[in-house]
Design a protein around this nucleic acid. Structure first.
Lengths: 353, 353
DNA sequence: TGTCAACGTGGTATCGATACCATGATCTGG
DNA sequence: CCAGATCATGGTATCGATACCACGTTGACA
């Protein structure tokens, strides 16, 4: 009687215990078990205790996929990141998890390698798990990605970049504003000839958000009456293997006039600093360097790297909160967060000032 | 007719299209649709074409959870990492994904924050999704974790640390061996008084694998006839916020005799190098520093950090391959991978040599 | 030309849970 | 003391897919 019925479905691996097993052991119906686990206050204390014991004894873990099928709520939240190997995105994911896991939601993480095609593929695969919400990094997506998400009819949250016209909801900062902030900070220190180093524009691996930062940087410089910044780009996406050293070398060789450099990411900024060290250029006395991202390394290197922080953990938590609100039936609003300067010791007034 | 039956289950959000919708549109049965998607070669070309068109038109994405319930194979692989904010683990996850995703498996990633209690909680939550396989980092788990995994009867792969007695399968390296390698390298350069810096032994956040490395380091030094290495530990888990600078300062103050330092992670090694730079101690001329992990930063800093690499991407792919083999019915074997030294410029012969 | 295998297709039961409804027991109030 | 509400519980249908079986068609071969 405690064995499963016909066993027709072939010889699978030893099956995990089901609610039916627990119910039989506890001497109650499966419905009572279901309620005991989901809404304990609607079950008598005695029944609850019997169920509790049976669960412990069997090592029962409910099958949430089956539950999802029945209730039409999977309690899964999909999350597509460009890559895991970037502290900021990892932090974002951890922030989201911190909020969602205790609330009974399971984050499902994927990485697209900065490619819109891979993102689309990923979205398709993840939609097959019927998430209750979908978090996307960035606001640039393929046409088909948008169509799929729209057809699925689920909550979509775009992040890492603020937009006034989100697909659905948006929690993010303005990359353009981050760039402006960088220019304003450097100009405020007295620098006039600015420079910036960023990622390239390969066809398939565009760094959309980095470009936004560069644009904001240039526009702010113009607005402040400075000459147009020198802007150099590397041949690859800057995060990870883009060290910035090569670009910095080009900058130093070809544009010796610049007294301050904004790097599109801390990784590049660090590489740039190393190139300076190699050449015996003192940072910040001879050259100021400003990064972006506030990665761990920014606080550890010498001199400490001044950078722009967007607090990804906080952003992740905000996203988690928005999702829970939406799941609870309320209508949360999009939110723009503010990037802020973290001052350390890699920026100062220009040499002759 | 194309509308769903009773609609009894309340007013949900706009529902995603189902196989029934596709079947109706294509003018075939749901079984034919199912086969068209799963085993196209068992369906006539005409039917296949009709289904294909209907799928495109509806934007249909199959519900893999429902499929999993029916077929008893979820095509989910659970993966518990200590943290995402560690390049090595992120690489491991990407390596696994690279293999599994194209094969139709979905990695489900969680992070335990180095805590066995959180790992257990995570395992429980992930088991609720009925993964076909479970990948765990490390070989130390709570009693209940082991019980749950055992009761579930699924494939378990332990990694990041090799053991002869795995729960099920193991793909990893010997942390002890990594430590030995470090001592052998430094001894081979002519160093006699070695030192090592590592993570602390808090009660809940033990760095088990780091301790193994330290043990291997000490044992190898003894075996080589060197005096016992000085071993200092930080008060927190070394990765991420453990910069190593403080420990290095203690080492320089209290044990000036050591000419070479092995750091339990590149993060600490980098902090140690910065402390040396701060004090004007030349690396490697006055002091050799050897790291572990071959993080990106090791190749970027000055001098380049000599370190021990365990090639996490390759390990991840190996894990993915093992899982696929197991799923295909064969019986893959555990595998021990070999850590190897990556020589850069932070280690050399000791000062007086 | 008849027999049998292979092939393409559809019907039905089922996976493990929850929604909804029905039932009987207990409680509350006039 | 009984009507109506509340509570605890169980039975049944169902979520969206696949496993298994059954059937009709076609083609190969003797």
């Amino acid at each position: 009687m405690t064995e499963h019925g016909t066993g027709r479905r072939g010889q699978h691996r030893r099956a995990a215990p089901t609610m039916k097993h627990v119910a039989a052991l506890a001497g109650v119906s499966v419905m009572t078990v279901s309620r005991a686990l989901a809404t304990p206050d609607r079950v008598s204390p005695e029944a609850l205790e019997k169920v509790r014991r049976a669960v412990l004894q069997t090592g029962y873990v409910p099958d949430r996929n089956a539950g999802a099928l029945s209730s039409q709520r999977s309690h899964i939240v999909a999350l597509t990141l460009p890559t895991l190997a970037n502290g900021n995105f990892a932090d974002l994911a951890e922030g989201i998890s911190d909020i969602l896991l205790p609330a009974g939601y399971q984050p499902l993480i994927g990485h697209s390698g900065h490619s819109l095609e891979k993102e689309e593929e990923l979205v398709r695969i993840m939609l097959a798990r019927r998430p209750d919400a979908f978090v996307l990094v960035g606001t640039t997506h393929s046409r088909e990605t948008s169509r799929l998400l729209h057809a699925s009819g689920i909550t979509v949250i775009e992040t890492w970049e603020y937009t006034d016209n989100p697909v659905d909801l948006c929690v993010g900062f303005s990359n353009r504003r981050a760039g402006e902030l960088a220019a304003e900070h450097l100009a405020g220190l007295g620098h006039r000839q600015l420079a910036a180093i960023g990622g390239s524009l390969d066809d398939t691996l565009k760094d959309y958000r980095g470009e936004q930062r560069l644009r904001g940087f240039r526009d702010a410089a113009r607005r402040l009456g400075l000459p147009d910044p020198v802007i150099l780009r590397e041949a690859v996406v800057p995060i990870r293997h883009g060290q910035g050293a090569g670009t910095m070398a080009r900058l130093l060789d070809d544009h010796p006039g610049a007294s301050a450099v904004f790097a599109i990411s801390d990784t590049m900024a660090f590489g740039a600093m190393m190139e300076c060290q190699r050449r015996g250029i003192a940072v910040p006395r001879q050259l100021s360097i400003l990064g972006f991202g506030d990665f761990d390394i920014a606080g550890q290197c010498l001199p400490g790297l001044s950078t722009i922080s967007v607090d990804p953990v906080a952003m992740g938590r905000m996203i988690g909160d928005r999702i829970l609100e939406r799941m609870a039936g309320s209508a949360p609003r999009s939110e723009e967060t503010a990037p802020r300067i973290v001052l350390r010791h890699s920026t100062s007034a220009p040499p002759g000032a």
